[in-house]
Write a protein that binds this DNA or RNA. Structure first.
Lengths: 103, 103
DNA sequence: TTCATGTACTTTCGAAAAGTAAGTAACTTT
DNA sequence: AAAGTTACTTACTTTTCGAAAGTACATGAA
């Protein structure tokens, strides 16, 4: 007997997008690689703690890749993997709906 | 100064889908009108409390409509409005991604 | 009449997640 | 030497969630 009778695979995605800030984080990363401070600038209401936490979760799930460049001030870059970039249609669909229905 | 520089309308959708169970609830309601007990059967891990809470939120946002039929044992039915049904492409996109990447 | 069953919730309460604020370490600029 | 930048951590408060039990109303059986 499975947890939900409708669509078990959906569970994973639901758990992913059903967390605060995750969708927005992926949305901004679709722009291209970003540094920690850039994410902060793009999502000012998201706390440092949650930015770190969500990025770690997405990294663990193979959606985001973290790279460290040992430059003058160390540079840490976050970018979407193929798996992450493939979420673009999802984000687009959400944006399309929002355009039609919000406000 | 806006909350996020990327897409303000996305905020609403993010707040909606970025809550636990909301996506799954919409997914099951895409089948057609369902009663409270049917939702429980479809999403057994979701508590009664959260089913009620999420349905009320979606009703308030104009995504779900609640109808009461005064039958023998009272029948309460929940169905998606046009606004709710228009979320189908979003759910489909998520399912498509899940098919490709989960497991 | 009392008991059991069914539907659709509501209430309570402890635990987990999120929000807020301040702190840290390494390095650079002034 | 003091102040600023970047990328986090840590500590603490508030909010949300989860599990379980309880409520209201009706039907039907014993």
């Amino acid at each position: 007997m499975q947890k939900t009778s409708i669509c078990p695979k959906y569970e994973f995605a639901a758990e992913l997008l059903g967390k605060k800030w995750t969708g927005l984080l992926i949305l901004v990363l679709l722009q291209g690689p970003l540094r920690f401070k850039d994410i902060k600038r793009e999502i000012p209401d998201m706390s440092d703690r949650l930015i770190t936490e969500r990025l770690r979760e997405l990294e663990e799930k193979g959606i985001v890749e973290r790279s460290v460049f040992p430059e003058k001030p160390v540079r840490v870059q976050y970018q979407l993997t193929k798996k992450g970039k493939d979420l673009e249609p999802v984000i687009n669909a959400i944006q399309h709906w929002a355009e039609a229905w919000v406000q």
